[in-house]
């Protein structure tokens, strides 16, 4: 990956550039957070927040930077999860190989699906991706001899070179490392020529095309990248949870993912992480409300978007910047 020009200019202070600094800070948070964990349940919630963050970092590339909406990303997540699970459980593949193969398979699927449907615009694209997600979830639920149907299937534990990942600590480490890698990749992509092309076509596709940018190719590429992030998180989730159901591909889940991205702040990688984390932890905190949980969650979501319309991170950091100026 190519380093950004700004990092080049201040090589001695590489860790203090916004990008590297952000990743260093995230790494610090990931490393320090377990000190406050009382038991395995905290690890569990943190791991899920991490997995959702990985998906959202990828999805944010598509929605936030390229301006293309997808309401079917749960479909890619589920394909990654079921692909890994099926290859490992039914055909006895080593889990790591199954995971890589499944992710590669999803990349291919995303390419084949993305090429035609990314010609659609706005809400029509949303509908087409939604249709894709719905199709995946129905096929997974219907093909019960292979997938176990709506009640789901068991997944063998993740093993690599004789080491079997079972403990919460191991999974926290794996997911934390993957999250950092995902953020690093996304940041590099954003700073690369592709990232600039994406932002250009977000502003105006026609203008970008006139400027010589191959819009369809860039759109399909970022679509595939975001699908790969989702599929990788899906595969990890399957091994971590040891159990998956087709509801992981549901329309509701896709909407949840988009909500996380917009909540955290579009076109902000750390916003995606914050959005995913907050919206993963919040339902756990709201269980004390019992039957009021759904209503309160909905109201909080509305209020956040009304008062912080650009999302939590961009709006708050904007305010901070204004305050310190």
């Amino acid at each position: 990956m190519r380093a950004s020009s700004r990092a080049d200019a201040r090589r001695t202070w590489w860790w203090a550039t916004p990008r590297s600094g952000g990743i260093a800070a995230l790494a610090l948070v990931v490393a320090v957070l377990p000190l406050g964990f009382a038991n395995g349940y905290f690890y569990d919630v943190a791991i899920q927040a991490g997995l959702n963050s990985i998906i959202c970092v990828g999805l944010n590339l598509l929605i936030g930077y390229a301006g293309q909406i997808s309401l079917g990303h749960a479909g890619f997540f589920a394909l990654g999860a079921y692909g890994s699970a099926l290859l490992a459980a039914r055909y006895g593949w080593p889990p790591s190989l199954a995971l890589v193969t499944a992710v590669a398979g999803v990349a291919l699927v995303a390419y084949c699906v993305g090429r035609p449907i990314l010609r659609l615009k706005g809400h029509y694209l949303a509908m087409a991706t939604l249709g894709f997600g719905v199709i995946v979830s129905i096929v997974l639920a219907n093909d019960d001899r292979l997938t176990g149907g709506p009640d789901g299937m068991q997944v063998p534990p993740f093993a690599l070179a004789g080491y079997v990942a079972r403990s919460d600590h191991a999974w926290y480490a794996i997911v934390g490392a993957c999250l950092l890698a995902a953020v690093w990749l996304a940041q590099n992509l954003v700073e690369s020529p592709t990232g600039r092309a994406l932002r250009a076509l977000h502003t105006s596709e026609v203008a970008a095309a006139i400027a010589g940018i191959d819009c369809p190719r860039h759109k399909v590429n970022v679509f595939v990248v975001s699908a790969v992030f989702a599929a990788a998180a899906g595969g990890l989730t399957a091994y971590y949870a040891g159990f998956i159901t087709p509801s992981s591909a549901s329309f509701v889940r896709s909407v949840e993912l988009v909500t996380m991205v917009v909540f955290g702040g579009m076109a902000s990688t750390f916003g995606a992480v914050v959005g995913a984390t907050v919206l993963t932890v919040l339902p756990q905190a709201l269980t004390v409300l019992k039957e009021y949980e759904l209503a309160v969650f909905g109201a909080l979501l509305m209020a956040t978007m009304v008062f912080l319309p650009r999302g939590v991170v961009p709006t708050l950091s904007g305010l901070l910047q204004r305050g310190t100026r």
Binding site: P18, A25, A38, F42, V281, L316, S317
Partner: peptide
């Protein structure tokens, strides 16, 4: 934008979230 500015919202949020989790843990 400086690194501190970028971090502040993230850390304060993390703190809030953590407090919520502890509160939710029950009495």
């Amino acid at each position: 934008m400086g690194i501190i500015d970028r971090l502040r919202p993230a850390t304060s949020l993390a703190g809030m979230v953590f407090a919520l989790m502890v509160l939710g843990a029950g009495v």
